[in-house]
């Protein structure tokens, strides 16, 4: 049953607003983890970990994907549907690339002796970057749903709210990753 419909135009759509609140709560989770990292780095047996270069490539991927999803939103609003579909596919591809590169980065760390045992930055790296990857995976699932809808949906979609929610979320996980990477390099 659809009960929520268009509200007054100058008010934010409830779904968009809910996303911002969700972002606030995700920020709190990572704030908890990164402050635990800071506290722990002052304690005994702290070991520094070298950031794998894969993470630099993955950062490039996710930043570019942010641009492409913004482009997709723009072409959707201009009703340039073929360009919109292409850009969504590119975003999806870059998102999957990001996850693959993160996985390669983790494997590299694991092979270079960064394990769960011990008390270094490595443990945090797996957990924090892993949770971030889960959030990106959530975005990818939403992206796939939207792509499937545009490819096989019978009804034409004119409402851009869903896409706007997704692109805001996508930018958020992008910025979050950049923050985390700087954090790791700075304090790791």
């Amino acid at each position: 049953m659809v009960i929520v419909s268009n509200q007054r135009n100058n008010r934010m759509h409830p779904h968009k607003f809910a996303l911002w609140v969700a972002i606030a709560s995700i920020i709190m989770m990572f704030a908890g983890l990164t402050s635990a990292y800071i506290v722990k780095s002052k304690l005994a047996n702290w070991e520094v970990v070298e950031i794998p270069t894969y993470f630099i490539y993955s950062t490039a991927c996710i930043i570019i994907s942010s641009l492409t999803i913004q482009g997709a939103l723009r072409s959707f609003k201009q009703r340039n549907m073929s360009q919109y579909r292409t850009l969504l596919m590119v975003t999806l591809f870059l998102g999957i690339c990001f996850l693959a590169l993160q996985y390669l980065g983790f494997s590299w760390l694991w092979e270079n002796g960064v394990r769960f045992r011990g008390a270094g930055a490595g443990q945090f790296l797996y957990i924090i970057a892993g949770l971030h990857a889960l959030h990106v995976a959530g975005g990818i699932i939403a992206l796939i749903v939207i792509i499937l809808r545009t490819l096989i949906g019978r009804k034409k979609v004119y409402n851009s709210v869903g896409l706007e929610v997704l692109s805001t979320y996508w930018h958020f996980v992008d910025v979050l990753w950049v923050y985390l990477l700087i954090f790791f390099i700075w304090l790791g």
Binding site: A24, I26, M28, M29, G32, L33, A36
Partner: peptide, 13 residues
């Protein structure tokens, strides 16, 4: 919204 996620990160660790 602001405090439960921090608990969750504590539980994950």
């Amino acid at each position: 919204v602001l405090s439960f996620p921090v608990l969750l990160s504590g539980f994950i660790l």
